[in-house]
Design a protein around this nucleic acid. Structure first.
Length: 575
RNA sequence: GCGCUCAUAGCUCAGCUGGAUAGAGUGUUUGGCUACGAACCAAAAGGUCGCAGGUUCGAGUCCUGCUGGGCGCACCA
């Protein structure tokens, strides 16, 4: 039930009606009804809604906006609507003031819908895939994964609430050079643990977790593997590590409240021939060509050769460069696998594919979209949300994080330090576009500065109030059927109004793929409740008012729980 | 050098497709618990929205240039 949207559309159609009437009477001249906005003004004195109709048509109508607004108003029929007054204001706005009748349906409706309140049908069952985290199984989960996990999971929840059919996917990078390197690193640790002096690979993974994995293997299978040739040892250890790493990633993601629907292995892309098939397709279509045994994807501008191999660090314009799909040694690149992966996503029937990537991959976006279009899919159906990197701060200094050096704070440690709810809320509340600093000292201090507590506190308070009411022997009525029109104080009406906005907040956040927009809303909602609570006695008082206020409080708890639920944050009954 | 991105209160950040007097939190100052949870409420102070142009009825928001951060430019992933 979109209360506000319904009223907005009602006002819109009445305005259009007024315009047409004015045109028929010859008071206004225009060819087509203009595209105008009806927005909710920031200032209360400007009414509940404001239309810019007169301003946008001033030029064509060759008339002052205020004059046009006057004409529209004189033709406006407000009978049978919630409109109590309408007036011309400012540069030519038409401001609408509603009577409060519409508010009284809201709390009852919320009780009727319960956990479904706030949900809208924007997506109409459209199939969407959200792929996120997709952390390399060569190390532990870090802050970047934490940010991606919070954003991705909330986005998936948000889209579900907005009527989309959503699948959450984790892409397992279990192939390629890094996996070979993982094997070498493991083998070196394995040998070292068995007392054999071994040189650790220069670019190897230095993390303690790699040593731990090697040790686990020895604990489980002994040292027999040492007699096998190195490549065999590396492969065996690598398989073992992948299994262990993946189990650990799943476990920590679970602790973080993120449960993926699909874990998609890069290896299966290669083994099933999908990578080869994608490359062959591009060759057949003439989008790619062979050179010295390698396969290259032609650059967008159509250059068909790469005479000069760019050296590392040399500055090359990406658009002019042909991308390598298969190396001269016959091994496909990450890019080729990723192309095949995205082709596969669309072949699986998703109407829309959303990826959440770290900003360090932004150079990859344009060519991936192009690749999608080469396979005949609409590149606009692929959306890549880039999130800027997380900088970890300790004692005012940046903590360098690197899998290479093995020095980083893990997601698991973070959850231990700051708690599940704070971690989730902290990461999702920020716009992905901006780089964020995560202050470890602040996080570890466990102060209640975190805004998530403010919202949760409101929920816990309401639960407490309801417990109080029952303890005092009041029988709670069916809140869906209570008469809420006894609520007339400003704080009560403001709270109901805020409650009515939830569906719009979900709709607009889903439309722009920005779950973080729910955070300021939830804060405002909690604030409206706290003000109401300060001003109005809830539990005592006379029967009709008491039930209405209890129902209003409970409706607020429902809305908060639904909103927090989308963000993956708990709504505690006590805290 | 080319490209992406960011710049809003002392600090951390919102600001929805351009709308009227730019908002929260935190910090500072000041009031409020012998009534339902003070992890709360009420109020004050705090701004040339990085700089300069442009587009129009109207710009924090769109365009151009500049300054300053972050990131990317491999037969790595």
């Amino acid at each position: 039930m979109r209360f506000i949207e319904t009223i907005r559309e009602n006002i819109r159609s009445r305005l259009v009606q007024a315009l047409t009437l004015a045109k028929d009477k010859g008071e206004l001249s225009f060819s087509e009804v203009p595209n105008f906005n009806i927005e909710i003004p920031r200032e209360k004195e400007h009414g509940d809604f404001a239309a810019n109709t007169a301003m946008v048509m001033a030029k064509e109508a060759r008339m002052a906006p205020r004059k046009i607004a006057e004409i529209i108003l004189s033709n406006l029929d407000t009978t049978g609507s919630y409109i109590a007054a309408a007036e011309v204001a400012g540069a030519g706005f038409i401001n609408f003031f509603l009577n409060t009748d519409w508010l009284y349906q809201v709390p009852g409706a919320i009780h009727k819908m319960g956990a479904g309140y706030g949900h809208v049908d924007l997506g109409q069952g459209e199939k969407v895939q959200v792929e996120f985290v997709s952390a390399n199984p060569t190390g532990l989960l870090h802050m970047g994964n934490a940010r991606g996990g919070a954003i991705g999971d909330s986005l998936a929840n948000l889209l579900k609430a907005a009527g989309y059919q959503v699948e959450k996917e984790f892409y397992i990078n279990d192939a390629g050079n890094q996996i070979i390197l993982l094997g070498k690193s493991l083998d070196a640790r394995f040998c070292q643990l068995l007392g054999i002096d071994t040189v650790f690979p220069e670019d190897g993974y230095h993390g303690n977790d790699i040593t731990a994995t090697a040790k686990h293997y020895i604990d489980e299978y002994g040292d027999a593997l040492i007699n096998k040739p190195a490549p065999e040892r590396e492969a065996e250890l690598c398989d073992y590590a992948l299994k262990e790493k993946l189990a650990s990633i799943k476990e920590v993601m679970g602790l973080y409240g993120v449960n993926f629907d699909v874990w998609y292995s890069e290896r299966t892309l290669h083994d099933s021939g999908k990578v080869r098939a994608a490359v062959d397709y591009l060759l057949e279509k003439g989008y790619a060509y062979e050179k010295d045994g390698a396969v290259l994807l032609k650059a967008e501008r159509g250059s068909d050769s790469n005479e000069k191999k760019p050296e590392k660090g040399e500055h090359v314009n990406l658009e002019d460069k042909d991308d390598v799909l298969v190396r001269a040694n016959g091994i496909p690149t990450y890019f080729a696998a990723d192309i095949a992966y995205h082709r596969d996503k669309f072949q699986r029937g998703f109407d829309r594919v959303i990826n959440i990537w770290g900003a360090d991959h932004h150079g990859h976006v344009a060519r991936m979209k192009r690749a999608v279009s080469l396979f005949g899919y609409d590149p606009d159906k692929l959306t890549v949300i880039l999130m800027q990197l997380v900088r970890l701060m300790r004692d005012g200094e940046v903590v360098k994080m690197s899998k290479r050096t093995g020095e980083y704070v893990t997601l698991e440690e973070l959850i231990d330090d700051v708690g599940y709810d704070a971690a989730r809320y902290f990461f999702v509340m920020r716009n992905p576009d901006s780089a964020m600093d995560f202050d470890l000292n602040l996080a570890k201090s466990k102060t209640s500065d975190n805004p998530v507590f403010y919202v949760q506190y409101a929920h816990a308070r309401i639960c407490s109030i309801l417990r109080q009411a029952q303890a005092k022997g009041f029988v709670l009525p069916d809140f869906a059927k209570v008469d809420y029109s006894v609520l007339v104080k400003a704080e009560e009406l403001a709270l109901i109004h805020k409650l009515a906005e939830l569906p719009e907040e979900i709709a607009s956040a889903a439309e722009s793929l920005e779950p973080h927009r729910l955070c300021p809303y939830l804060h405002d909602l909690a604030s409206a409740f706290h003000s109401f609570y300060r001003q109005c006695r809830v539990v005592d008082g006379e029967e009709p008012l008491r039930n209405a206020r209890l129902g209003l409080a409970k409706a607020t708890a429902i809305a908060i729980a639904n909103g927090l639920g989308i963000l993956g944050v708990n709504a505690p009954e006590e805290m």
